[in-house]
Amino acid sequence: MGDRDAFARLYRLTSPNLFGLALRILGRRSLAEEALQDAFVNIWRHAADFRPERAAPQTWLAAIVRNRALDLLRASPPEDPPAEDPEIETWASADLGPLEKAMAGDEAKALLECMKRLQAKQRQAIALAYYHGLAHGDLARHLAEPIGTVKTWIRRGIEQLKRCLEA
């Protein structure tokens, strides 16, 4: 399999999920297309940086796409706050069952189990930061809570996740 073929195949396989991610973060199709394009150009150029012993291919790819999407989000912030997102509602609810099918790999499952143990507010804040690129200030506005409260949710959430993931 030549490099070009491998690259085309990788694109076919992974682009729907990664485009879904970029759309989620950016909320605008044209920007999400731009993020996906830039990300795959980076993947092609930086393929040599991929270290199979340090990262799984899926998370490596997702990180590249998300980082590019976050750059574009900061360069052109949306005029409106993120629309109601049913998937964030799920993260904020007590029942994470609907997420189990999509997060079926061992590592994803372990993360989901640990997310289940967080308070719903902590989970919601982490999901909003990850999927919508909201910073502390945006989170406070979006959730109508004091910024100190939101920072504490994130901080405690990370601490608890770390203990749970490494248990």
Partner: peptide, 26 residues
Amino acid sequence: FWEGRFNLLAEAVSPVTPPERVWTVV
């Protein structure tokens, strides 16, 4: 470590097939 963990959340996203023009440009 956290890149490897938080980016697992990408798996929960509903996939959307991008338009063919994205690949053409890539």
